[in-house]
Every structure is written in C-alpha cells, then in structure tokens.
Design a protein around this nucleic acid. Structure first.
Lengths: 370, 370
DNA sequence: GCTTGTACTTGAAACGCATCAAAGGGGCCG
DNA sequence: CGGCCCCTTTGATGCGTTTCAAGTACAAGC
C-alpha cells in the first residue's frame, strides 16, 4: 500500500532516477532495451507518477480547467464537450468543476485551478467577470465563456441578441400579429434575447408584443401557469405566437395551452429559445434556436492555446459566435402539437440535421443523449 | 506576471514563511492582527497558493476525482450531482473528467487522478473494472459506480434487474398480453434490465414477449425504425406494450407509431426505462423508471469517506441501491400520446413528484434542467 | 593507440509549500 | 527578581519530480 516512487523504480531496474524520468517524458532519448526494462519495472511495481511533484518540478501540465455553473444545463455540457474535444486534439486534459450556482464555489474552483499549474482556465461565469477583477490578471491564461467582458481579456460569447432576432424573424415569417414573450430575463443572456426580439420587431410596428415575467427560475411549471393564463383570455386577446425565453418554459406553455383545448400550433404557435436537447429529442419536438455551445467551448480552448503559444501579454480579444447556426425544426407526431415547421418526418429531420452538421459536433453529441 | 510565491508574501508582510503558511492552513494559530496583515498582503500581491506544492508537501488534498464515460448522459450527471453535494458536505472538492467513451482516456484520467494525490477516486466504468485490475489495488481509495465488480473492492450499483422487473410489472398491471422490448442490450446494465423483465414475466407464461434488437447505439432513430416496423404489422401481431430499454428509444417508437396512425397509448402503450429528464421534462412526458443516479453518487462519496476515515485495508463492500424509487408518470397534453397514467394534470404531477422527493435531490436537480 | 564524436546515463539542484521542533516573548507567581 | 508556562512565530527539512550540465561507454576515423 505504500506508494512506490520513482526512486524505487530506478533501484529495482538498476538505473538512475533521471533515466526513469526520461523514460516517462522523453522516451526517445533512451535505448529501446532500457526503455523496455523500465516500463516492465513500472508495471511490475505499479508505479504511478506523482502529478503534484511533476507539476511542481516541471511547470505547467498539459491540462485545462473548466468551471461551469451547473452540470445539468445542456448548454454547459455542449461547452464542455466542445472544449474537451478541442483540448484532446492538442494533447491536453480537461478537468471540469461544478460551481453549483454558487459564487463562492465558482471563485474557489477558479483559484484552485489557477493554483494547480493548469495551462489555462475557462469559466462560464454566473456574474460578470468584472465582479472579481483579480482573476483577470492572473499568471494563467484564462478565457471567459458565454459572457461579455468590458475589461480587457479573452472571452467567447454567443450572440444572444441574434438569437432573439432569429426567433422574432421566424414569428414574422409565420405571419404573427401578436407575440408574447414568456420568461424572466434574470440573466444577461436572456435580457439580450429579449432585446434582439424587440429590435427585430421595431421594423414592424403593426405587430403587437408583450413580455410576461415568469417565476424566478423559468421552470416548466412557470410556463404552464402563464400558458393557462393565456388560454383563459378571450380569443382576440390571445397571442398567436409565444416565445419561451427558455425551452422548458415553452414546453410548459404548450402543455397548458393544449390542456385547455387550444390548438398548438393551430391557434397559437410556440417556440423556445435555447436548443435544449429535450426540445428536439423528445417525442414531441419544439422549434428552438440552438446557441453554439459546442463551438464556444472549442473556441475557448483555441484562445487558450493562442495565449500559451504566443506567450504575448494578453491583449483584449473577443470572439463572437453567431447563434444563427440553425433552427431546429421538426414535425411532431400528434395532430395538435407545434407542427409549424412541417417539412418532413421528425426523425428524418433529426437525421438530416446531424448529417448536415458533421463538422459541428453539437448535433452528434446531443444525439447520443440517452 | 511572474508568479508571487509564499516567500514574497512573507517578506512583504515582514513575517516568516511558516507564518504565512499557517495563515492559510491554521488561521486559528495566529494572532488576529497578524492574520489580518497577512491576508491583506496576500490580496494586495494577488498571491495564489501553488496547489502542486501544497499537495506535494502536505500529502493528499481534500478533493475527489470522478471519471465519467460521457457528460451528455443524464444519468451520469445525476451521479455527478449527488457526488458533488455529498463531497461538499464533507468539505471536499470534486473534479470531473470526461472519458468520452474511450477506454484509453478513462484509464488515463484514472491514473491522472490517482497520481494527483486525490483523497479518493470514483469511476463509472465502461467495461468491467476487472478489465484493468491494476487499478483496484492502488494506494488511493477508489469506488466503482453503476457496475458490479466480482473482485474485492468498493462499488455502488443500481439494481438494473429490479428496474426491468418494475417495468414488466407495470405492463402486467396494465393488462398487457404481448410485450415487445426494444433495444440492444450492449451494456451489462441493459442486459440486466432485460433479465429483470424476463424474470418478472416468467410467472406469466400467457404473456407473449419478444425482444427486438435496435441499432448499435440505441438512438431515437433506431426506435423510430422499430416503431415503424411494428406499425406495419397486422393488428393482431402488434404488441400492446412496448418497452424501450432506453427512454430515447421509447421516444422514437412513439413518434413512429403515432406517425403511422397508431394510437398511443390507446392501441399500444410505450414505456421507457431510464428516467431521462427529457422523458418527463418535455411537453409530452413518458412513463419511465428512474434509476437513482443521484443516490449512487452520494453513496459513492460516502464509501470514499469511509475508506479515508477508517484507513482500514479495503475490504469488499458493495452497496446496492434499489431502483424502485419511483415511476415517473404523467398526463400528456395531446389526445393521442401515452396518456396511460392519467392521474392528474402533467405539471401538477411533476410538482407533486418533486415535493414528495425533497430528500432525493434528483428531482430537484433535474427540475432545473433548462 | 589516440582523438573526436555519438548515444546514453547520471545525480545534484530546484520547484513552492507544510510541518514541526525549537526559539522568542510576555504574563504570572512565588 | 527569577522561574515557569503559554501563546506565537521561526526556519530548516523534506515531499517526488524534472531538468541539465557533466559524465561514461563505445565506435569510427586517423
């Protein structure tokens, strides 16, 4: 049970300590026989290099840290997935920490990663990173994800405003006369979506628009409540297009409307706004705009690599990724549900979505969502 | 940009190196003024302890590593969530690595964690851990999750067989005469579910049962294909109850059946088998059995703590968590879809589900799935 | 046989910190 | 005033590696 260290391997193999180290890090420098001997000894003894010591002695390790606000948020997972693949491509490991919606914890893990000699760190922050500016001038490359920083630094953000615009344009294209936006714009991202919707509609003063605040957490239950409220209105005061700022909200709205006997999309169309897998993997898909989470993660790692390779003092560099990507559309099964984009059978649609975005692994990854 | 180290802080604060170290690790040993002075200096200089050095000097850190096969699998996330909460409760950090369905990578991260002086490591292995037995006799506490080990060691597994049994019993209770199980039992977990179904049905020889293999990955598309195939049969050869070994499969089956004009659950009932959030968060919920992922993660950390505290040589210890937990049932919106558990309105049902399982944070966590 | 070069191998130094025995300082008691 | 004890601070030591200048062995060329 006592840990076997490099010197044990060296002694046992009858070579010096430095040679074992070379076997691990620069195998090309050793004579093949020596290498083989050492590897055998390593396996026989069950030697496991002490990462702490390696890092201490050798400087940074080839690994990145990623701090996410939650793990059960599909978008964050797309980020993680994109970051992971890109990191592996460069031969880096990716370690993920869950801040669990807690400022303190986010800060804690951030410091932890910076102190672990990670080669770089990424965060999808809950608050603006300006909130803890100390972090931005750390001796480790850092990239903020899904957020706009005013301070100099690196960040990758999705164009949330465009996302709102796209949904609004979809509504316009579908001939909407009265649009209801459902949800609490508690986060900057959601606020921007609303802004995008307003901007797009500014050109169409004849279209009526209202925004209904949902409960604090934008849950499906909140959506259901608002849906019920909408259903209860006289027909001529009902919107003909509802946008859930969140897919889950949209789901709730649909449930309520249909429960109350209102046809979707016959009388009211409903769309979501964040490309949640549940929106298009369920048996009744929902039209939604998918923000490019995977791409954000990928780009984040690329910015990290850039900082590492150039070793230049971090100048400001921001990357914007258009959210336009694609609108997940689908045909539903049930007669009565959200059939608005009736192009082809649901599953074929999904299949074709995957096929057409092979370069964008998002679809593939989400597709495997069991 | 040069990293500031503990000696810099000490010099700047006019105290010795050991005192700064104490400020960090044993603040109660310092006079309040000294502590304050040091903390101010730390902040002023932006000092960040080098975790590698700490670990090297001080032995294990209070942190656990968790290696997951994928991140976009709801079940794994429940594990992560449970493990995280339990770990934090004990004051431990949790770092997560994504093995991305790759044996090599799983092994890599496992070694990485073991070498990082983690206090303990958990894996949800893809293959049986007997596959790489070297890992089980490492000098770091390790717990295997969601798998049965024959070797001595610690593991936490869900009772997948019970899961199959529960679904089968549901089918029986609903008066099924012909059950079709859909899916490829590629993994042990799925095999056990099938086994459970068979065992439960052994008592009912009059009920016909068939198993249809799905494509390699049990995707929704696979389910759709099989659903279409079922739909094409003459009415009297069609099952009246379909079990998807995976919720996604079940979703696909439903889509196909309804597309082909077969009423669900009027003519055919369909149930899933793994409590995927998409099953019950979507606008059309699916009946499914939820395996206790959250509980598995929690229990895993508890076993780790046990090993750490007792420091006894790891004896075999296995924990089984019954999957019985709860059957997520729901009322759907659309007339034609899977309404089989028509108890009360969908969202109320969900609300009550959450309320009744406050102690089981699974529901709460999944509920927040945006 | 001697020199030069090539191909490996060696081992001491440093990495940044936690630890802990020992020293320092101050108050209290006799 | 001396002796004790307690509270606080000190700094040398070692943690397991990597690195790199210095060393060894051997072959080829003269």
């Amino acid at each position: 049970m006592a840990k076997v260290k490099i010197s044990d391997v060296a002694r046992e193999a009858g070579v010096s300590l430095g040679t074992v180290s070379n076997a691990l890090n620069h195998p090309e420098k050793l004579r093949p026989e020596t290498l083989k001997l050492i590897n055998e000894t390593i396996n026989r003894l069950g030697y496991l290099p002490n990462q702490s010591a390696r890092q201490l002695a050798g400087g940074a390790t080839k690994s990145f840290g990623l701090v996410l606000p939650r793990l059960d948020h599909g978008f964050s997972l797309q980020i993680a997935s994109g970051a992971h693949n890109e990191a592996r491509k460069h031969g880096y490991d990716l370690l993920i920490a869950n801040a669990d919606n807690d400022d303190i914890l986010e800060d804690h893990y951030l410091r932890y990663f910076m102190g672990t000699q990670m080669s770089g760190v990424m965060v999808q922050p809950m608050a603006s990173p300006d909130w803890h500016p100390a972090m931005t001038k750390m001796p480790v490359p850092i990239v903020h994800l899904d957020i706009h920083c005013s301070e100099p630094g690196y960040y990758v953000a999705a164009d949330n405003e465009a996302q709102g615009r796209i949904i609004a344009e979809l509504a316009i294209a579908r001939g909407a006369r009265h649009i209801t936006v459902v949800g609490r714009a508690a986060f900057m991202q959601l606020t921007l979506r609303v802004l995008g919707i307003h901007k797009a509609l500014a050109l169409h003063p004849d279209i009526k628009i209202e925004v209904i605040d949902a409960g604090e957490w934008n849950t499906a239950a909140d959506g259901y409540g608002i849906g019920a409220q909408i259903a209860a209105r006289p027909a001529d005061e009902r919107p003909d297009f509802v946008v859930g700022l969140t897919d889950v909200l949209a789901s709730g709205v649909i449930s309520a409307l249909v429960d109350k006997g209102i046809s979707v999309p016959g009388q009211v169309r409903v769309a979501g706004c964040d490309g949640n897998p549940l929106a298009w993997s369920g048996s009744v898909p929902l039209t939604t705009v998918a923000p490019p989470g995977y791409e954000i993660g990928r780009k984040g790692v690329q910015l990290l690599m850039e900082q590492i390779e150039n070793k230049a003092p971090a100048k400001t560099k921001h990357v914007h990724i258009g959210s336009a990507a694609r609108t997940v559309t689908a045909v539903t099964a049930a007669e009565d549900i959200n059939r608005q984009e009736l192009v082809r059978p649901f599953l074929l649609e999904r299949a074709s979505t995957q096929a057409s975005t092979q370069t964008d692994a998002t679809a593939i990854n989400l597709g495997a969502y069991l």
